[in-house]
Design a protein around this nucleic acid. Structure first.
Length: 505
DNA sequence: ATCGGCTCGCGCAA
DNA sequence: TGCGCGAAGCCGAT
């Protein structure tokens, strides 16, 4: 793929104008409001903002903000994002742009900042992310923005707008991609849209900086101290995983060179994991799916002419690559983009009633079935069930901010089995995942959670209590299938310490 | 270890 | 209208 030319312009299908205000040529700068693609590289939003700068000969101001009052805001999520800001500050300092990282010090403190910056802008470019509170926030801003505002889709390899409907099965979406994806693979974002160009410069006014001080990133290593003053959840402590584009690229490199060939066999093996560990970086936009795709295909010298002319929707054989590579690309394309397809098409993607009819029907038939075990949210959260394997998976989530690939399915199936109703089970899954997982609050998190309840799946027999025709999973079989000795030891109960205390450093 | 049966909605060819 | 097929299932038989 590397040899094909990079698209000169951001594809129009990735851009939508919101509101009806016009561009103001007498503004002082172009404003890029960075909310989802928190990176300087391979970012169509940034690239679009630069297009405007060049057309108008105006400076570029980039606002990367972090509110403190969004749901589940915590030390863990804040620290990851702020580490990303450190990388971005370093990256943008080598370019003729003004980068303005802002972290809200108390709820509502940031109110007015965006409006103030917009009032001097020619045009505003924002990120078109279809999940969590971002769509609502962005439309609220768009409704009262006095200048032209564009949202750019830099989420994935397929522009969200090109899928004409919701796909209810991976197989159908995969078949669609096999027909449609190739041309879009050629329309890649520029690696560095600011390379080799000199834009006019601007500064943020002193009175603005005084009221909304840019976050000081020099002492990011000490950030635990100033994070503790923010009105966020300090019980959800930060984790060793470092956020930001630098670490994201380091992980990508290590995955491609060390693990990719084993991906097919070992991705579910806890003791010698062959996973990429990139989902949190994708979620916060520290890394682009295009960058991952380019790096993987370069490593294995794949080119589009290896693609099979036969479109079947089958998982294997279409890419014309080794099984491990096809498996990983299927994750990156079919499964990742399937979640974006759902969130883009349906605003009720996080509601129980968005499940397929057969799943709702069978779950409701069995809602009154007696439960052998029933736990409330706190018992789940404290990993206080009777099942050591489930508790270990929950502790991994709470302590490290992620959960093992295969166990997260079992984790969800058991929550369904051990709560009073499927709707409550859904609430528990969403809450725990969004609160503790670095990659939560993302379309793919919702895919995983809803898969537990039947989305993208099919009915299975025999019909069982509670589950009905929903696919069942058991801890005993999982323990038989995976080597879990080290995992169980690592995530066993702590002796003295409460689960929610900060991890020892 | 590897199998067949369980069981069914969906898209597409016919 | 019928057919093929599906993210990771389980269970019992060989």
């Amino acid at each position: 793929m590397d040899s094909s030319p990079v698209t000169a312009l951001v594809p129009p299908t990735r851009i939508r104008t919101v509101g009806d205000a016009s561009m103001r040529p007498d503004g002082q700068y172009v404003l890029y409001w960075m909310t989802a693609y928190r990176r300087g590289q391979a970012n169509f939003s940034l690239q679009r903002a630069v297009e405007w700068c060049r057309e108008l000969n105006k400076p570029l101001l980039i606002l990367e903000g972090l509110q403190s009052d969004y749901p589940w805001a915590s030390d863990r999520l804040h620290r990851f994002v702020i580490q990303g800001m450190v990388d971005n500050a370093r990256h943008f300092s080598g370019h003729t742009v003004t980068y303005y990282p802002y972290v809200e010090s108390e709820p509502g403190a940031g109110r007015g900042l965006l409006r103030t910056l917009v009032s001097s802008a020619c045009v505003v470019v924002g990120d078109d992310f279809p999940c969590f509170f971002l769509p609502r926030m962005v439309s609220a801003v768009a409704a009262r923005t006095p200048v032209r505002m564009e949202l750019v889709d830099s989420n994935g390899l397929l522009p969200m707008r090109t899928a004409p409907k919701v796909f209810s099965r991976a197989f159908d979406f995969r078949r669609f991609l096999q027909r449609e994806l190739l041309p879009h693979l050629a329309e890649r974002p520029q690696t560095d849209p600011l390379a080799d160009i000199a834009l006019p410069t601007t500064t943020v006014r002193a009175d603005i900086l005084q009221r909304w001080p840019a976050v000081v990133l020099d002492d990011a290593d000490q950030d635990t101290r100033w994070l503790s003053k923010l009105p966020i959840d300090h019980q959800v402590h930060s984790v060793p995983s470092q956020g930001g584009s630098v670490e994201a690229n380091r992980r990508l490199e290590s995955f491609v060179t060390q693990k990719l060939t084993r991906y097919g066999d070992d991705r579910n093996q806890p003791d010698k994991p062959a996973t990429s560990g990139l989902s949190a970086y994708l979620h916060f936009g520290h890394l682009s799916a295009h960058t991952i795709f380019d790096r993987v295909t370069r490593e294995v010298a794949w080119s589009p002419d290896q693609v099979s002319p036969k479109v079947t929707g089958s998982q294997t054989g279409w890419w014309g690559a080794a099984a491990s590579v096809e498996g990983f690309l299927d994750q990156l394309t079919t499964w990742r983009e399937l979640g974006f397809n759902m969130c883009w098409q349906r605003t009720d993607f996080d509601q129980f009633d968005s499940l397929p009819d057969w799943a709702i029907q069978t779950l409701e038939t069995h809602t009154e079935d007696p439960r052998d075990f029933s736990y409330d949210l706190e018992q789940f959260e404290q990993a206080a069930t009777h099942d050591p394997l489930w508790n270990a998976a929950q502790r991994e989530l709470v302590r490290d901010g992620h959960m093992h690939n295969y166990l997260r399915m079992l984790w969800g199936k058991k929550i369904l089995e051990w709560t009073e109703s499927p709707r409550v089970a859904l609430d528990v899954m969403i809450h725990l995942n969004n609160k503790y997982a670095l990659d939560g609050r993302n379309p793919n998190s919702y895919s995983g959670i809803f898969w537990v309840l039947g989305r993208y799946d099919r009915a299975w027999g025999p019909e069982r209590p509670i589950f009905g025709k929903i696919r069942y999973m058991s801890s005993a079989n999982t323990a038989r299938k995976l080597k879990l000795k080290q995992y169980l030891a690592k995530y066993g109960p702590l002796q003295q310490q409460s689960l929610l205390d900060p991890a020892p450093r």
